[in-house]
Every structure is written in C-alpha cells, then in structure tokens.
Design a protein around this nucleic acid. Structure first.
Lengths: 240, 240
DNA sequence: CTGTCAATAGTTATCATACAGATTTTCGGT
DNA sequence: ACCGAAAATCTGTATGATAACTATTGACAG
C-alpha cells in the first residue's frame, strides 16, 4: 500500500474520501485477507501524509460500509466483504440480440404459466383491468405512439390476475427490459402497421382466453405471442 | 432531535456509533426532509455532549451510507435515501404453506421450461453432471441424510444445461427456498421411504428424458414432479 | 429603489497535541 | 516453561487552532 494521495486533485474530493478510497482499493485488490490487521492509524497517516483525524474519518466510512472492524487497543481488522445485493435480470445488453432472447426465454416460461393461472383465478375487477390495458395498447397503436409502457402494463395486469404475488414480483423485477419495444426502440423488428396489428391480435387472443376462463387456451395464446417475439429476434440474428 | 446519548451504555458501541445511529434515526423518522440542512457539527456536539471529533466521524459514516452530503462552509445536507436493493423471492414465510406454494408455482413455470430446453441443448458434460447429481440425491436417500442440498444441485444442473444464463440466475436467486425439504425441515410432508423413492423416481424420469433429448417428455416429467410437490403441500393445507 | 461589493459571521476540513482505556508484547522471577 | 507485571502499541475521545469555503449583512453607487 504505497499510495500517496493526490493532494492537488480537487476532483478526487476531500482527503478523507481519498484515503477511504485508497483503503477500499487496497482491500479489494487483495492486499489484505479477511481477519488481517490494517496498518495502524498513525502509520496510515504517515504513509499518506495526512493527519490522524483524516484517517480516523476514513476508517469510520469503511466501518460503516462493513469493510473493517476497529478494535480498541488491538487494531483495525478486515471483515468478510458482504455481497452487494443486486437485482437479477438487469444486465441486458441491448446491443446483443442473444442477451435479449435469453431473457425472453425465461420470461416466456413464466408468462405462459401466468396466463393460465390468470384465466382460472382472475376476479371480475382484474378481468376488467386487463381489458382496459389491452384497449390502451390498441389506442397507442392507433395514435402511432410507442406501445411499450402500455404493453408492459398489460402483461403486469395478467401477472396480477394470477393472484400469486410471486408472478407480479417477477414482472416487476425484469421490468420493461423484457418488452421488445423498450429493449429495441431503434432496431425494432418492425414498426410496421402489420406487425402492430399482429401484436394486437395476439394480445386479443390472450385476453379473450383469460376472460373465457380457458387456461389452456390462454397458455397457448401467450406461448404463440412470446414465441413470435423470439422468432422475430432470431430472424434478426440471421440478417446481421 | 433531543436525543442525549447514553454514555454509560456499553452495548451501544462507541460514541461515534451512538451519535451516527441517533442521526440515522432522526433522518428516518422524518425530522428532516431531503435537502434540509442538519444542525452544525458544533451544535450536534453540544446537543450530545460529545466532542466535535466524534460528530465528524459520525457524519463520515452517514456520508459513506449516502445519507448526507457535507458541503464545506455551508453545512451537512440530507440526501435522497437510496432504496436498498433487495433480492426478490426471499421473504418466504415458512410457517405459511401458501407462501411456499406461491413460490413453488413460479418455480414450476420456470423449471418445466428449463427441463425442455435442457433436453435440447445439454452438452455431454452437462448431461453427465445431471446424472452425477441425480446419483448424489439417491446416495443421500440411501444413507438417510437430508437431500435438499443435493436436490437443489440437481435442479441447478438442469438449469445450467439450458445454456441460458437467465435460468441459472433464477435458480441462484430463489436458492434453496424453493426446495421442499429445505423449506420445511420439520413439518415435511413425509420423510417416509415411499415418499423419497417417489421423489427419486420422478427425478429419474426427468433425467432420462433430458438424456434422451426428449424436450416434451422432460417438461412433462418436471411438471409431474413439481405439481406433485404442490399437491403434497396443498394436502397439508387441508389437514391444518 | 436596485444592484454590487466588501466585511463579517458561520461552517466544514484539516492539523496538532494530549489523555484515557484496551490489547499486545516483552521482560523478569519462580 | 509458565505466570504476572510492566512497557509498548493501538484505538477512542477531547481540546485548541488554522485554513478554506459559504451565507448574510451593511454600505455605497447609480
């Protein structure tokens, strides 16, 4: 750990921030193992050419982050880094079609089943909500507006109609990542009228089956819809 | 903010920790809005009966947590609290069968599809891994050991064999929450020999279909397996 | 009356020194 | 070799001071 802080670098923040970041860097680059003792505050202060006050505040930061544990009289000890919780399914690389298709496959599995459950379990109010969102998608198409938000709302309403919060939770986590239009605004497989009409027709088949309480038809309609999306993306793979 | 720190309370940690926690409490209880200025360091020190050094270190903690932004000459300002990222699908209430069944329904949707894809896409090495984990489950059954870890490993290997990282990611996120044995160690629907043999047989059907490259049979076998789990839990609902 | 500038007051950032309390190391005695 | 005491080391806290920055106030000119 021979990092001298750049005292004249205003963009790096205060000395406390600089020393804290230097220590973080030392920790993450493997200079210290879990359970190791950092150099003493006095030594760190000397190494960085700062006062002990600065070092103590930097260490307070690291302690707050759970990276170290100071023990009075003994030293400052390195803790097991806690894995930062990150939401899954977020790192969709929109420039790579395969990244989109992969998430679409997972989503298909969930949403096909969701459509079936929704057909069995939806309440009249949920059924009505689904119709309303379906009409909203149609409105966007008629007005030439982007459909992704309305599209996602429709899919969310279907997940809600399963009355199993896990399906709603899944939709919320993947968010609009998995809605083709949001993921590919400029290189969309087709913004043509015929594509949008096809989309709307596929939606209609899903919504009707759910309304009819026909679980198998709902599943099949959703499968056709989402496999259509997959097919369109795979077709893009062949043309690029 | 009239909190006097309990100086004689050893369990509360150092003065820095106590003041930091008092400030966190004040922030989260709505004493300050985003953009508000905290009292000056000198004032906080006076209020708590500590030195300014302690207050500065406490504020360094809060800054590291993203809760405040000190501005030299101006004051310490309250920041917008960032939503802590939490993993989805974790809050399984093991005392409520409905909570377990809900997650099992979602998992079923994903894993039925995963079995189908695995049957089509698995490499010989992945096929071999599936068999090995299947044998490991059988070994646990034969030795009367808990099967949940081996069971989860088998399911994970199947998700891996889809060669779509999203399926593996899904299994990793839900973890062993969704494996019946882990979720219900003491009130398990049955630890009887016949149940375990049934489990092993269902696994064998899945594994064989994947090995045969029969996607539809793999899906059906996985569906039977997981719907069997659902059925066993629903039967518990009726007896409690 | 409005705008500008300088002075003042207030605030954070850093440094230095000192002491207290806890832990670790060293040394001497048995 | 083991134990206990003393010394050394280390973190926790307090105090005082200075530097750099911001906000406020008052005076003056147009």
């Amino acid at each position: 750990m021979n990092l001298q802080h750049p005292r004249n670098d205003k963009g790096a923040g205060t000395l406390v921030i600089q020393v804290a970041n230097a220590l973080r860097s030392a920790l993450s680059s493997g200079d210290y193992a879990v359970g190791d003792k950092l150099p003493s505050e006095a030594r760190i202060a000397e190494t960085h050419g700062v006062s002990r006050t600065v070092v103590r505040e930097a260490i307070a930061s690291l302690r707050s982050d759970g990276l170290v544990e100071p023990r009075r009289g003994a030293g400052v000890f390195v803790l097991e880094p806690t894995e930062p919780a990150t939401l899954p399914f977020q790192n969709v690389d929109h420039a790579r079609l395969s990244s989109i298709i992969a998430l679409l496959e997972l989503r298909s599995a969930v949403e096909v089943e969701a459509a079936g459950l929704a057909a069995v379990r939806r309440s009249p109010a949920q059924e009505e909500a689904i119709f309303e969102f379906h009409r909203a998608v149609g409105q966007c198409i008629a007005e030439g507006k982007p459909t992704s938000t309305a599209d996602f709302a429709l899919h969310t309403a279907i997940a809600d109609a399963t009355n199993n919060p896990r399906f709603s939770e899944f939709l919320r986590v993947i968010g609009q990542n998995a809605i083709p239009r949001a993921a590919l605004s400029s290189t969309d497989p087709g913004s043509s009228k015929s594509y949008l009409e096809q989309l709307h027709l596929e939606h209609a088949n899903i919504v009707t089956a759910i309304s009819d309480g026909d679980a198998e038809a709902a599943r099949e309609a959703m499968r056709v819809h989402l496999q259509g999306s997959q097919r369109r993306y795979r077709a893009l793979l062949q043309t690029t």
